[in-house]
Amino acid sequence: MSSPYATLPEFEYARPSTLEEALKLLAKYGEEAKVLAGGVGLITFMLERLVSPRIVIDIKKIPELRRIEYTEGKGLVLGAAARISEITRYMDSNPRVREKYRALYEALSRIADLQIRNRATIGGNICEALPFMDSYAPLALFDAKLRIASVEGERETTITDFVKGPGFLDLAPNELLVSIELPDPPRESRSGFSKIVPAIEYSVASVAMLVANPVDPRSREVRIAVSAATPAPIRVREAEEVFRREGDIVDLLDAALDRMTSAIKELVIEDPYASAEYRLEMLKVQAYILFKRLLDSFLQERG
């Protein structure tokens, strides 16, 4: 992100203290409004004149949007304006929660640097709508529910339905992303996140994976989600289904990852920073290495 401009375009600024107030402003200004959470994306977009909102609505002071809360059986709820570093700190002080949502933790704790993580928010990360946003693959992995509100009411969606492609969200001008709910993952599951950042600040291929009960063919579960290599995040269910076949998990891995490759091949991004061929192969390579890491993490727990 870069800009020849050193100043921001002129705009009005509002800092509502309740969700209701924020939604009213959004209803009033619609497309002329932009929501400010951490500002990591918005300010740079404004510097570049990619957006020039008439009004900037700052949601940082709405307590409800800063929520970070885990409830046994219900799962983890993150307010859209919860900061990345607040979330990882919460997880560090609740190691059980951290291990449950390990893939999310690994992704969030490696976003940019600490100064950025102190500003950036989970909602901002989601709404930036660029392929390499680090929260995407883990949120797809954990079947996250995104709660969207407007003055007209509320609705619920998933990350893969919400993020349509670069710059495209399923979000009406009067709507606001309010919270993200991650249901409890399968019992005794392990998850992890892996990305390739070759000489740029952003990933060109990200994989999140979850494995539960790997040695029991009846109860085992494998989930795979990818992002960065594709315009929008993908939960690769075609690959996950392969693990429902008969046989040992390790005997199905090659077939599952081949299935992943064929399922997403046509969608992979090609640009000056990484070829489609490399991105696709990196998804596969990382999936193998991640799978090994997850198996080993079951072992370590026992050893």
Binding site: P214, V215, D248, I249, V250, L253, D254, V285, Y288, I289, F291, K292, L295, D296, F298, L299, R302
Partner: peptide, 14 residues
């Protein structure tokens, strides 16, 4: 080698 080590890990886990 990665695939082999996956099998080894799996064997140990079992």
């Amino acid at each position: 080698a990665v695939k082999r080590s996956i099998r080894e890990s799996y064997k140990k886990l079992r």
